[in-house]
């Protein structure tokens, strides 16, 4: 549904996007993840036909981004990072206007507007001026305008930014409800957002692709590190060196009362570690396998650890 091949974008000297390639399949929700200034917004602007690319190919919903801008725009719903709202219009008249410029046939326009008002939960503010409604409602108006022409693909730039936790949950549920029928690419720098809403992710930093794939693929590619995290009743300074004497241990780090012990791939030192703890009466409170959580995955990815 969304295909990007070797995309480049330069702003003068600044290389905003470098050789970016990824693919999002139909009906999936993918996250475009990266720290601020990673090139997320630029990539989305190129995909929606707002900005031209310097080089490369991209197609959305089967339409070439650069060759068929009009067909492309008819099939994309886009929520920019800064909400494109006219504060002096009412919610209803704004949506009606957007439906009109997105070329909804006039006979279906009224229904289309009513439908998105209903889906986005805007019924209570439909007659109010946009400048007078809350941030959460404004965000909904933003999503409503993206949905109004019933597009196959939704491109959402930071859809939950600036919302309170309850609103974030509602917007996420709204986005998840489109799963299967629409293909969605959403950008975020929140990891929780990705794990909760997305099927997969493209992680970029400074315009470079760091990793991409489904969530399972991404976590699987990180299984090379093995080890345990243990929590002990004793906090003696000699503990790290004691643990380090176990043959095979490659790295020990200590953080707020927890020791992370790593070893090489294919080994299992859990028995040895337990034995040592029991022998030295260090008082084992907790032992869990070292799992790469999404946060570590992300940090490792943007620092180049996952570069394929």
């Amino acid at each position: 549904m969304i295909e990007v091949e070797n995309l480049f974008k330069k702003f003068g000297e600044l290389q905003a996007v470098k050789d970016l390639s990824f693919k999002v399949e139909k009906g999936k929700i993918w996250g475009l993840l990266g720290p601020n200034a990673a090139g997320k917004t630029t990539t989305m602007r190129i995909l929606t036909g707002y900005l031209p690319a310097t080089d490369g190919k991209a197609s959305v919903a089967g339409f070439d981004v650069f060759q068929q801008p009009n067909e492309l725009k008819k099939n994309i719903g886009y929520l920019p990072e800064v909400l494109p709202l006219y504060p002096e219009m009412t919610v209803h008249s704004f949506l009606d206007f957007v439906a009109e410029i997105k070329q909804t046939p006039s006979s279906e326009r009224k229904d289309a507007v009513e439908k998105v008002i209903d889906i986005s939960g805007l019924a209570s503010v439909r007659g109010r001026l946009i400048k007078n409604i809350s941030r959460g409602f404004k965000q909904r108006v933003g999503i409503a305008q993206a949905l109004i022409h019933d597009p196959q693909v939704l491109i959402l730039d930071e859809p939950t930014i600036g919302l309170d936790p309850a609103q974030i949950k509602e917007i996420r549920q709204l986005i998840k409800s489109f799963k299967g029928e629409r293909t969605i690419l959403l950008s975020t720098h929140l990891l929780a957002e990705m794990t909760q809403t997305c099927d997969g992710a493209v992680i970029i930093n400074e315009g470079n692709l760091m990793a991409s794939g489904s969530l399972e693929e991404l976590t699987a590619s990180f299984k090379e590190k093995e080890g345990v995290v243990i929590k002990l009743r004793q906090h003696g300074k000699e503990i790290p060196s004691l643990l380090g004497k176990i043959p095979g241990v490659s790295k020990i780090s200590q953080e707020v009362g927890e020791f992370t012990i790593e070893w090489g791939k294919g080994m299992d030192l859990r028995d040895e570690i337990t034995k040592l703890i029991v022998d030295k009466e260090l008082g084992l409170i907790e032992m869990r396998p070292l799992a790469m959580n999404i946060e570590e995955l992300y940090l490792s990815a943007i620092s180049g650890g996952l570069r394929q």
Binding site: N70, P84, Y86, I101, K102, Q103
Partner: peptide, 14 residues
């Protein structure tokens, strides 16, 4: 200034 042009230029109008 309001960045509403992003809406106009991503709509199927010239």
């Amino acid at each position: 200034k309001r960045q509403t042009e992003e809406l106009l230029f991503t709509c199927p109008i010239t």
